[in-house]
Amino acid sequence: MANKKLTLALFSGSVDKLTAAGVILGGAAAEDMDVEIFVLLQAAFAFKKENALTNNRVAEITDKQDEFLASLKRLNAPHWTEAFRNAKEMTNVKIHICGFAGKVWNGEKLDDFIDLADDICGIGEYMTSAEQADINLFI
């Protein structure tokens, strides 16, 4: 039986939402789902090499940012990049950087992004992939 497929339109560049995405990816990896992630606009900022580990922005409950980040450490939660990497090691995960999003953040080449990224693509790729997905998420 073919693996089920998850597509994720990842718009957010905030660690709270990226961490949530990492948790969902873990669930998908446990179930051997095929996953395709399309890194859009603000998420492309987070995927830039110089930002991935230093970006601590949160999108929600921003007045509790310090408490949130401290809780992640206390709970031994992996950084989102590590959660994504774990999922890539356990199941078939492809990460596509939206070409437009890359340009917004001065990322023209794949090498401008962390090595989790597999390629730079256009939105048509996402539409085709999402049409075939069992689960499609926007974060």
């Binding site: 873990g26 669930g27 446990a30 031994n76 939660a77 774990n86």
Partner: peptide, 14 residues
């Protein structure tokens, strides 16, 4: 025991 969700599930899968 040192991990939070989905750590134990991923540990089980491995």
């Amino acid at each position: 025991r040192g991990t939070s969700c989905p750590g134990p599930l991923l540990a089980a899968k491995k």
